[in-house]
Design a protein around this nucleic acid. Sequence first.
DNA 1: TTTTGAGTTGTTCGA
DNA 2: GTCGAACAACTCAAA
Length: 455
Amino acid sequence: MCSQPGIVWFRLDLRLSDNAALQQALERHSSVIPVFIWAPEEELPWAPGGASRWWLHHSAAALAADLERRGSRLIVRRGPTERALAGLIAETGATAVYWNRRYEPAVIARDAVLKERFPAVSCAGNLLVEPWNVRTLRVFAAYWRAIQALPAPAPPGDAPARIPGPERWPDSVRIEELGLLPKTDWAGGIRESWSPGEAGARRELERFAGAGIADYASGRDVPGERGTSRLSPHLHFGEVSARQVWRAAADEGFRRELAWREFAHHLLYHFPETPDEALRPEFRRFPWRMNERELRAWTQGRTGYPLVDAGMRELWHTGWMHNRVRMVAASFLVKHLLIPWQEGAAWFWDTLVDADLANNTLGWQWSAGCGADAAPYFRIFNPVLQAQKFDARGVYVRRWIPELRGVADEWVHEPWRAPGGVPAGYVRPIVEHRAARDRALKALATLRVPRLPAS
DNA sequence: TTTTGAGTTGTTCGA
DNA sequence: GTCGAACAACTCAAA
């Protein structure tokens, strides 16, 4: 046991329970200094977006309060991280820095430098499986088989009852001073929808593991109902650990979804260029068709396709979109509009409270068909068919598009065919499905490598 | 080492 | 209305 303090640097692990870095520091040091450092410039080009910053503000505040209940504090500093940590070490005599690993390329590079500079202990706290413990795979089914052959995740650890601090605490800036909250308050809808912090995460997990999970298989695809776990932002910020979720939600289908999160991190680690570039090289010459006006129609939920527009409005209002709708909205942008998937990824990055580089990259590349788990080229979602299948009564689209509330079920997903026409305030489709589908198939056909005739 | 076949959150067409 | 086939190409597992 070291009598000098250890620093626990909180990043995307804003919890006290099942926190490997915190546990290790407590085992080795008689006192611990919890630290949060705001250094977005070190994560470029993927610094936290607007919705993420809102969440981070509240989650850090919740963590600070949780620490204070255990006799500790959260010391908040601005970056650069190297300077912040060097200062804290000089001020406190700390002999080591503990953190839980992250897997984004810019963060890996930054952390590698810090590891050279300071006595550092990096822990496995955010994933069930470290990416290098499975050989590089590009197909989910193979990955899923591979990780199922591994030992089951260890049981999660409890939160420490007390966290001893140093005799004299170093200075801290107030979280408010970091400027994470928007200047004009656009976050009202997000505030009503979410409770950032470890306690909020636990409530959501208990709700889901208690009652929700029984209907997961049938309910997860119905955007009008609360059939999904809604754990994504809590998992992203590490307010709940993957092991805790795995343990509490013992449903094969749901665990498969957790495995998708693992797979996304596996891919990001092994193919670090994929946030910006297609994994499949042939897609780098795909005939994209950038169009600012249509991109804006998509972001504003004014494409004329109710399911797409409802999803985009749900995203803008609550910082989140149902998974089924994400697939349809993403497919619409890249296949119907032929707008580069990176544009969609950037919009999601800024607006999602669960914006996660690994998941966002996998999702967009999967939708565009240029990534892992080769989406067949012919998988072009029909936004009307998807809506009729998964929102048969129009509950979801009417919730987010009030203009459609007077339209009968029969036409609610294709209001341009309604007897009265498109209702006032709503828009006609910006592209016609059949024509857009044919155009996308033609564009995809340009990627085909002509077979050389056998000679 | 080479070959074969399954898999891949969908849509459309025609019987 | 319902159902099966067809729609490439590629990765990966198993033979």
